[in-house]
Simulated assay, not measured.
Amino acid sequence: MHGRNWTTRIAVSVAAVGVASVTTMGAAPATTASAPAGTQAAPSAYTAPAAPSHAAGVSAGFADVDYETWKRDVSAVTDVARPYLEQRISQGSGDKMAIVLDIDNTSLETHFHPFWEFPTPPIQQTLDLARYAKSRGVAVYFVTARPGIIYSLTKYNLEKAGFPISGLYVRDLPDLFEEVSKYKTAKRAEIEAKGYKIIANIGNTPTDMAGGHAEKTFKLPDYDGALS
Rank of each mutant, 00 (worst) to 15 (best):
R9M: 13
V17H: 15
G18P: 10
V22D: 13
A27W: 01
T31S: 13
A33T: 00
S34R: 12
P36E: 05
A42C: 01
Y46W: 01
A48P: 03
P49K: 12
S53K: 15
A55C: 15
A60F: 07
A63G: 02
Y67C: 07
T69F: 03
D73Q: 15
D73I: 05
A76K: 13
A76C: 09
V80Q: 11
R82C: 00
P83R: 06
Q87S: 15
Q87I: 07
S93A: 14
D95N: 14
K96T: 14
V100A: 05
V100G: 01
I103H: 02
S107F: 05
E109H: 10
T110C: 10
H111L: 00
P114G: 09
P114A: 10
T126A: 10
A130I: 11
A130D: 05
K134R: 13
K134S: 13
K134E: 11
K134D: 12
Y141L: 06
T144Q: 04
P147E: 03
G148I: 05
Y151A: 04
L153W: 00
K160N: 06
K160D: 06
F163C: 04
Y169L: 05
L173V: 14
F177R: 08
Y183R: 07
K184W: 03
R188F: 09
I191S: 01
K197C: 03
I202F: 00
P206W: 07
T207C: 10
A210W: 05
G211N: 08
F218H: 07
K219R: 15
L220A: 06
D222N: 14
D222C: 04
